[in-house]
Every structure is written in C-alpha cells, then in structure tokens.
C-alpha cells in the first residue's frame, strides 16, 4: 500500500498540487484520472520521488519515502517499476538488454538465470522474437510492451504507469490495459495508473481518484463513477460525443 498524505507541489509561484491525500491499495489498479494539465504526471513524479514534494509525504507500506536519503530510497526503488509515457526505453540497448537492465543493476543472478527471466516476461507481454530489435525499430504498442516487461522484470511490489495507452489505437490500448490488470493481479502489486482515457477507467478502475486543477475532487470506482452527481467529474466523464449520447 502506498499513501500520499497532504501533498502539495509548487513550480515557482504556481501551485500545481493542493493538499492531496490518497491511499493506493495493494493488489488493485489505483487510477489517477483527470484532464490534461490537471497535475497527474506531477503527482506520479512526486510519488516516486522524481519531484520533491513541498508539503506532506509519501509512505510506501508505512515507510516515509519523502524524508529518506538517496541510499534508503534506493532500497525502495529496487521494489518499484515504472512505465513512462513514451516508454523511455534505453536507446543504447536492444529489447532484451533493456529488459535485463534492472536485473544487471540490482541482482547478482547468473546470465542464464537472467536470460530466462527476460524471456519469461517478454512472453508474458506477448512479445516473442523481438529480442534483438532496438527501440527505434518498434511500433508504439511494442514499445509499451517492452516497457512493461522492463518494469516488471525484477518482480516489483509497486508499479507506476503514466498514460499507458496514450498514442495507441483503441484495440491495442485495450490490450495494454488488460495486460496491466492481469499482471497486477498475478504479482499482487500496488499499481498506480495515470489516465485521461475513460475507456481505461471502465476497464481498470478498482480505486479511482479524480484530480481537477491540482485538487482531489472525487474518489470511487468504475461502477460509482457513472452514477455520481459531482459536476466536475461528470464534465470529465461525459465529455465526448459518444458518452454524452450514451448518457441520454
């Protein structure tokens, strides 16, 4: 379980996040939703320590991450995987080397053991026979799969995903969402997913936090989200022509 407690974040004079407290549960897909520019990425970066919070703190299973130094944080970072918006695969390395990278950095496993694990996770994301390709040679969907494989290679307890299906066609987007849901269950991870895609919300929303202009505006799940009367939420959920017509 990860807990954000009263987090605030400023860039210069502008306040981006205002007093946000959320509990992210273990074994569930915890969604952070909101419009573009709402502050989702900034919140995710605060959670993993890529940005420092200006007030409040983040606890990883009771361990206060925000007040830790580099060394203690490193211990927690070994336990977390992150899927970046563009994939952020290392251009130096091919698919296999990218996935093996966390194992090379954090374990003392024998090469055969690592190779086996790499093939295992690549198979898990349905990406076989691409081991020797370089990031520049992959399609958007493949890139996301490799990034997921890399994020889970070292058996993380916590998985962070920033817009996992942005830039993908609807079918591939669904596949990626399903994959994240399945993996979360299989590994019993605490998964946190940022998204503005209402379709993803309905697939994966076990525990949803709606952020509006840097404030936590609503919390619920994929069932309650369609019947709530929070105006800000409804403006977000029923923003597209399709959802508007369905609502009628």
């Amino acid at each position: 379980m990860i807990e954000a407690k009263n987090i605030s974040k400023f860039f210069g004079e502008t306040q981006i996040l205002e007093d946000i407290s959320i509990r992210f549960e273990k074994g569930k897909n915890n969604l952070i939703i909101g419009q573009s520019g709402a502050g989702k990425t900034v919140l995710l970066k605060c959670l993993v320590g890529l940005l420092e919070v200006d007030a409040g703190h983040v606890d990883f299973d009771g361990r206060n991450f925000s007040s830790m130094g580099f060394k203690d944080r490193r211990a927690i970072r070994k336990e977390l995987g992150m899927l970046f918006q563009g994939g952020a695969l290392f251009d130096y390395y091919n698919v296999e080397e990218n996935v093996m990278f966390p194992l090379n950095m954090f374990t003392h496993q024998h090469i055969e053991e690592k190779q086996q694990r790499v093939n295992e996770v690549l198979k898990r994301v349905n990406l076989e026979n691409a081991n020797k390709l370089f990031p520049g040679e992959l399609s958007g969907g493949m890139t996301k799969r490799v990034a997921i494989a890399r994020a889970i290679a070292n058996n993380p307890k916590y998985l962070f995903c920033d817009e996992p299906n942005s830039g993908l066609d609807p079918k591939t987007a669904n596949l990626i969402d399903d994959l994240i849901v399945e993996i979360t269950e299989e590994y019993n991870m605490t998964t946190i997913v940022n998204t503005h895609d209402i379709n993803s919300v309905l697939i994966m929303g076990d525990n949803i936090s709606f952020i509006n202009r840097g404030k936590l505006s609503w919390q619920g799940n994929k069932d309650t989200i369609l019947i709530d009367d929070n105006d800000e939420l409804n403006a977000f959920v029923f923003a597209t022509e399709l959802t508007k017509r369905l609502k009628k």
């Binding site: 970066k45 993993v48 890529l50 944080r73 490193r74 970072r77 070994k78 977390l80 992150m82 970046f84 918006q85 563009g86 994939g87 952020a88 695969l89 290392f90 251009d91 990278f101 966390p102 950095m105 954090f106």
Partner: peptide
C-alpha cells in the same frame, strides 16, 4: 526529453 534519464533515476541509478 524522452524520459530515459528519469527511467534511470527511478531505478535508483
């Protein structure tokens, strides 16, 4: 800009 540096940092590197 492609997030590779963040990806390294996230891994504690």
């Amino acid at each position: 800009i492609s997030g590779q540096i963040d990806a390294l940092e996230i891994m504690g590197i």
